[in-house]
Simulated assay, not measured.
Amino acid sequence: MARSPNTEARRAEITQALLTVIARHGYEKATIQSIASQAGLAPGLIHYHFKNKQEILLSLIDMLAEVARSRFARICDAAAAPGQRLDAYLEARLGMGEGAAPDAVAAWVMISAEAVRQEEVRAVYSQVIAQELGMVTELVAAALGEQQRDSRGAPTIAAGVLALMEGAFGLSSATTGVMPAGYAAKAAKDYAQLSISAAPPARRDSRKRKS
């Protein structure tokens, strides 16, 4: 049976409250009481909508993935060429402009740590990362095609982009004022462009070679 709109709205409030709490205090200190206090709800209502704290965390993973996709969709509206769409993606994920969400980044870093410890969290986190890798691979492959480069290296370049992103998220949460402002998006764009430019030319169709 589908949940009512009121139930979905309440679950979203609770999930958002967990995001705020773990971004500021970490997952271990995020108690049902602290989540309820942040949401302005009674602890009993938290238990009514979620079995436990882990279930809220799993909901948060889905929410953050959807927020990231929505920001990319907004930024890439004006990007027509494949290379522009790849840049728009990196700006959406790493840029500090409109829509940037430091608390969401901090929460994502906490989630990645819990994915190491909790099998259930790892399964959902891995699924989101796999989807993200697939999206980046498609963007990179299109950018390679635009420059008439061999697209077979797209998965490796995409994996490098994703690793750079996740590392940047960790540094932004673990350090204050150490890394240069706005470095992450620029570094990721430079890495992607250099990798694409260094890729070998696209192979010609064998039938064309024979002719």
Results as ranks from 00 to 15, higher is better:
S37Q: 14
V121E: 05
F72Q: 07
I111E: 01
I35A: 03
H47W: 08
E55D: 15
G83S: 13
Y89I: 01
D87S: 09
P102Q: 09
K53D: 09
E98M: 12
E98K: 11
R69H: 11
A100N: 09
R71G: 06
V105Q: 14
A100K: 04
V128D: 07
A81N: 00
R117W: 05
R74Q: 14
A78H: 12
A92F: 05
Q54H: 10
L60H: 08
E120A: 06
G97A: 08
E66S: 15
A73T: 00
L45A: 03
M63N: 05
E114H: 09
R93D: 04
L41E: 02
L86V: 01
S112G: 10
L86E: 01
S70Q: 15
V124E: 12
Y89S: 00
R85I: 05
N52F: 08
S59R: 11
L41N: 03
V116S: 08
A30Q: 02
Y125K: 05
W108S: 14
A106H: 09
A106V: 00
I32P: 01
D77M: 12
A88L: 02
I46F: 05
Q131R: 15
I111N: 02
R85A: 04
A88R: 00
K53V: 03
I35Y: 02
V124A: 15
L64G: 07
A80T: 11
L60T: 05
E66D: 15
A88E: 03
A80Y: 00
Q38P: 04
G40D: 01
Y89K: 02
V116N: 11
P102H: 12
P102D: 10
R93G: 02
V124C: 08
A36T: 07
M135T: 07
A104H: 09
V67R: 13
S112E: 09
R122D: 13
R122V: 06
V128K: 13
M63H: 11
E132W: 12
V121Y: 04
A73G: 00
A104I: 04
M63P: 01
A39G: 02
R71N: 08
V121S: 07
A113G: 07
A30L: 02
V109S: 00
S112Q: 11
R71A: 09
A88T: 00
Q127L: 13
A100F: 11
V124K: 14
Q84T: 08
L86I: 02
E91R: 06
E66A: 15
M135P: 00
K51M: 12
R122S: 12
V105I: 15
R69W: 13
Q118W: 05
R122G: 09
C76K: 10
I129Q: 15
A88K: 00
L57I: 00
L57T: 02
I61A: 05
